[in-house]
Amino acid sequence: MGLLKAVWRHPSGRIGAAIIFIFLVLAGLGVVGLTPHDPLKQFVVDRLKPPSATYWFGTDLLGRDNFSRLMLGISESFIVAFASVAVAASAGAVIGLFAAWWGHLWDGVLMRTMDVLLAFPAILLALLIVAIEGAGMVTSIVAIGIVYTPIFARVVRAPALALKAREFVEAARTFGSSQGYILTRHLLLNLVAPLTVQITLALAWALLTESGLSFLGLGTQPPAPSLGVMLAESKSMMTRAPWLMIFPGLTIMLAILGFNLLGDALRDILDPRTQGRAA
C-alpha cells in the first residue's frame, strides 16, 4: 500500500502510527481479557500500592491493578471513539454531499439544520443528550456522533461544491452520465482524501470528548474503567497516589497525540498544497 509507506516515511506520521498501533494492541488485549490482572478484582491488601514489578502502574484505593484497568479503559474509550466517528462521518458525508449536489433549498435546509446543531458547544450538546437518555456507552456514542455530524457535513460540502463546478463534472454532464455515476465516481471518489484526514482528526476529538464526558461522570459508568473515570477518581488522592493521575493522564494525551500526528501526516500526504506545512 502506497499510503502506508508514505505515512511511514513521514516523520510525525511514523510516530503517530506507532502510538496508535500500540494502543490498538493494548485495547485488543484488554477486550479479550489478556490483562496482567483482573481489572475489576479488588486486591484488598494491596491498596494504593505505588508502581512495582507486580503492579506496573500501581493500584487504586480498592486495590485494583492500575495497568489492567488502563488497558480496559483504552478499549472502552476507543470503542466509543471509533463508533461515534463512524456515525458522524457517514451521516455528515451523506448530508454534505446532498446539500452540495442538490443545492438551493435543500442546501439551505440541510446546512441550517447543521448550524442549529453547531450552535451548541460540543460538550453541552452531549450533556443535553446524556440528560435525556441517561449516561452510558451507547448514549456517549450517539451524543458524540451527533455532535460531530455537522462538522463532517461542512468538511464534505465545501469540496463537493468545488468539485461540482469542476470541468470534469461538466464534461460528465455533456456525456449524459447519470447522477449516481457522477456522485460516486466524480464526487465521492475525490472526497476520500479529505474524509480520511478528517476521520483521523475526529478520532482525536472523539477521544477528548469521551474522556471529558466520563470525567464528568456522564460517560462510561463505574465500575467499568474508562480513562476519564479513572482520572476523575484520582483527583481526591492525587497527593497520596499521583500514579493514579499520571498514567491515565499520559495515556489520554498519547492517544490523542497519536491521532493528531497521523491526521497531520495524512493531510500532508494527501493534500499536496500543504506539503510540509502542518504545524
Binding site: 470534469f168 464534461a171 460528465a172 456525456f175 447519470s178 455515476y181 465516481r185 471518489l189
Partner: peptide, 19 residues
C-alpha cells in the same frame, strides 16, 4: 481540470460509453 484525477485512462474513456 477536465479529467477526474482519481480515474485511470480506461475509466475516463469508458465514461461516455457507460453514459
Amino acid at each position: 481540470a477536465s479529467l477526474n484525477p482519481r480515474l485511470n485512462v480506461e475509466g475516463l474513456l469508458a465514461e461516455p460509453a457507460i453514459a
